[in-house]
Amino acid sequence: MPTKIEKDSLTGTDTTGHEWDGLKELNTPLPKWWLWTFYATIAFSAVWMVVYPSFPGWRGTSGWIAREAVMAEVEAANARNAPMMERLRQATPAAIAADPELRAFAVAGGRVAFANNCAGCHGAGGQGAPGGFPSLVDDDWLWGGSLEAIQHTIRHGIRAGESDEQRQSQMPRFGADGLLTPAQVNDVAEHVLSLTGRATDEAAARRGGEIYAEQCASCHGERGEGNRDVGAPRLSDQVWLYGGSKAQIVAMINNPRAGVMPAWQGRLDPAVINMLAVFVHSLGGGE
């Protein structure tokens, strides 16, 4: 309790009785309406707490819930986009790419869908990742880079066990199953290196060439040009999914690895799959 209330001689105003190291506080009255605005804010907060969901379990008399408001906004946005989505559902990817309006919508929506569903393996910009996650921005396509081929891959997946439509192939385990001796594997690897001009042992490469023609060429092609029907990679280019060094090539001949991609048909709206196809195609220019 303030005790030493006194009148300030200079201003004629009372002090509040508070003193700090000789400094005394004048009691300059606030306008009374100011006090009423303070009471008004208390009354306002009381009303607010009744009207809005202020406590756990209390939904408020207005029925307004932040989550429901967001859901309503999402629904409104979906309703706004519905005609566009229907057009995307009906059109082929090629037709979408040819229509500037549809294409702009598909690329914008595809970017979001890609970030949600694809970026985990293929990277935020479609750059892929070491260890069998292919880059989508270059010009090397295992299963084809046309709009239709991309759409097919997204729909049915790769080795996903989804249906007969899926991308399916398996390379024999030449080393692990004893189909080739270690020396033969070494020779084949030398031959594969020679396809990009990197062989170090000409004699081994020649020997390997004969084995290659017998064992490998049916899928990878006579000159290593690859085969998209079975997803056999081109061996004569600069892009190596599992690495292009001799040791990595030997490892692949001994015990091949093969990537798996889920089938998105049934998980994603056909319109979204079409948007993704157009977006992925736009990343590196497609084919």
């Binding site: 990277g123 910009g125 750059q127 921005v137 010009d139 081109r234 600069q238």
Partner: peptide, 18 residues
């Protein structure tokens, strides 16, 4: 300029930026 990836190596060994 695309930042992921910083550049793309093409099948023929060429370099591309987007």
């Amino acid at each position: 300029r695309d930042r992921a990836p910083l550049y793309v190596r093409l099948a023929d060994g060429g370099i591309r930026n987007a």
